[in-house]
Nucleic acid binder design. Sequence first.
DNA 1: CGCATTTATTTGTAAATACAAATATAGGTT
DNA 2: AACCTATATTTGTATTTACAAATAAATGCG
Lengths: 145, 145
Amino acid sequence: MGPLDTYLPYLLNRAGARIATAFSEEVRPLGATLQIWRVLAALREQDGRRMGDLSNTTSIEVSTLTRLVDNMEQKGLVARRRDAEDARAVLLHITSAGRRLAQRILPIAERYEAVALAGFNASEAETLKAALRRLYANMDGLKGS
Amino acid sequence: MGPLDTYLPYLLNRAGARIATAFSEEVRPLGATLQIWRVLAALREQDGRRMGDLSNTTSIEVSTLTRLVDNMEQKGLVARRRDAEDARAVLLHITSAGRRLAQRILPIAERYEAVALAGFNASEAETLKAALRRLYANMDGLKGS
DNA sequence: CGCATTTATTTGTAAATACAAATATAGGTT
DNA sequence: AACCTATATTTGTATTTACAAATAAATGCG
C-alpha cells in the first residue's frame, strides 16, 4: 500500500473524526453530544421511528442506541411508544424539548457544512456528496454479513 | 437543514462507519482491531514516531492511544523507546511481529479500497480523495481550539 | 392450535474512549 | 542555579461502546 494519505478509508476517517471532534465540542455547552444530535436530526426528518431503523440511519449500534435513548428519554428529549401494529417494536418520538434543542443545534450544524465545504463550488460539493453516497452503497454487500 | 442525506457530515460519518465496521470484523480473526491496524499502518509508513504524532495521524486521542499502545506492546507488536534528544517524548517502533501482522492485514486493506471505489474511474477516485484532503484542511482552524 | 423460527429490543459485561489532572522534562528568564 | 511556563505522556475515572445472551412478540407450519 502506498502512502497513508492516498488510502481512501484513511482519508475518510480522518476527515470524519476531525468534524466529529470539533462539532462535539461545540454542542457540549448546549448539553448535547454528537450522538444525541444524530438521533434528534433523524427524528426531525421523520418522527416515530423504530430503534432498528434509527440504528441504521444514525450508524449507532442498536444496543448502544438503546442506552442512548434511555438517557435522552430521561432528559425529556424523546419518548418511546410501543408500536400498536407490532408489539415487538418501539417507536421513538421527538418531544417539544427535543425539537427545541435540535433547533438550537441546527445553526451549528449548518455552519459545519459550510466550513467543511469552504472553497468548494456547488458542483464540486455535489460531486463529493454523490461520491460518498456511492461509496456507501458499494459497501452494502459487506455490511454486517 | 434539508434531508439528512444531503448533509455532508452525515454522509461522511455514514460511509466511514460502514467501512470501519466491516473492516473490523474482517481483521478480528487475525487478532487485530481497526485501531491496531491504524497504528501499525502509521508506523509502517514512518517508524519511531512520538505518541502525539501518532495521535494526529491516526485520529486516536492521546490518552486512548497510550493504553492501546500498552496493549500492543504486550502483544509484542510495538516497542516504546525514550527519545534520546528529548526525554519527555516516547518514540514508538514497530517490531517484526508487528510488521508480520501488518503484512497480513495489508491485502484486506487493499481490498477495502477497491470495494469502496468500485465503479469509480481513476480520475473520479482522485477527485474524491482530493476533496477529502481539502475538507480535512478546511477543518484545521476549528480542530481543537 | 402448539411449536419452531425469525425479528425487535433490551440487558449483562468487558473493553474502549474521553476529559481532566498528574507527572516528567525542556527551555527560557533572571 | 532557581523559577516559571510550555510541551509530552501517562494516569484517574466516569462514560460510551460493542458483542453476546436474554427477553418478547410475530410469523409460519405441521
